[in-house]
Design a protein around this nucleic acid. Sequence first.
DNA 1: AAGCAAAGTTAGCCTTGGCTAAACCCTGAA
DNA 2: TTCAGGGTTTAGCCAAGGCTAACTTTGCTT
Lengths: 137, 137
Amino acid sequence: MTLPDPGEQARRFIKVREAHRSEVQQDYVELIADLVAARGVARVVDLAERFGVTTATVANTLARLKRDGLVEDRPYRSLCLTAAGTAMAEASRARHDIVVAFLLRLGVSRAVAELDAEGLEHHLSAETLAAMEGFAG
Amino acid sequence: MTLPDPGEQARRFIKVREAHRSEVQQDYVELIADLVAARGVARVVDLAERFGVTTATVANTLARLKRDGLVEDRPYRSLCLTAAGTAMAEASRARHDIVVAFLLRLGVSRAVAELDAEGLEHHLSAETLAAMEGFAG
DNA sequence: AAGCAAAGTTAGCCTTGGCTAAACCCTGAA
DNA sequence: TTCAGGGTTTAGCCAAGGCTAACTTTGCTT
């Protein structure tokens, strides 16, 4: 039983923790973009329902997204992404689609593919994502 | 652009949040088991070095693991897993190995496989894991 | 145009998981 | 045997991301 180099191992865990920090942001901008695309508006209640949290939690999270320049600050108005938020949403969606296509190609059912993609997509390096894209077709 | 069913989508995100809660636990018991296997003892300083955090953070996290019955409570002694902790460590390691083997088979470099596995392994359903195992050989 | 219900926000609380600084144990060398 | 230094724990701080309860704003309906 040989152990990895300590510094190398630490870098891996630090990377995972960094990914966690942007996960929520990516999920939010992606869902806001999808809602806007599908029905023209994204409301706080919709996000709360689709994330499975309360509207208070959504408001709390949106405050951070506004602070970070991803969402427009327009109280009591429909949600709206900034240019940076839109860019992040597009990147997230592209990656999400690759992961789902890959899992389907691997033989996983649609329901499970959509489920696992949600957790997986934030932890893929460019190299792995490229390999998945190639495999998916 | 059609949106998923709200309840279905919520269940996905709830699942991801649940996975997050046990991630740290799994990483800790897995590393403790590896250290014990490789050198007989697992010390707080080793965990801190390999996770890339301070020893204070490790002590804090270990208090939760002890509370949850995964680690023996023996202050100032080498860390030691309970039966439950050992079982979790074995399951984590098996899953980790499958993911790494799968990524290597997919054509990803060893370094990136080890890196991505660390983030990926906590977000795989049984179905996807089985598919990966089959693909890996 | 008024009033009410639904949507949104705010205040205050909790846990997790980071940190620093300081106190505390333990052990090996003098 | 003692005591200095390294390993461990404790105390106290912070941000993220959950919650409930109470409040405000909006906008639909009458």
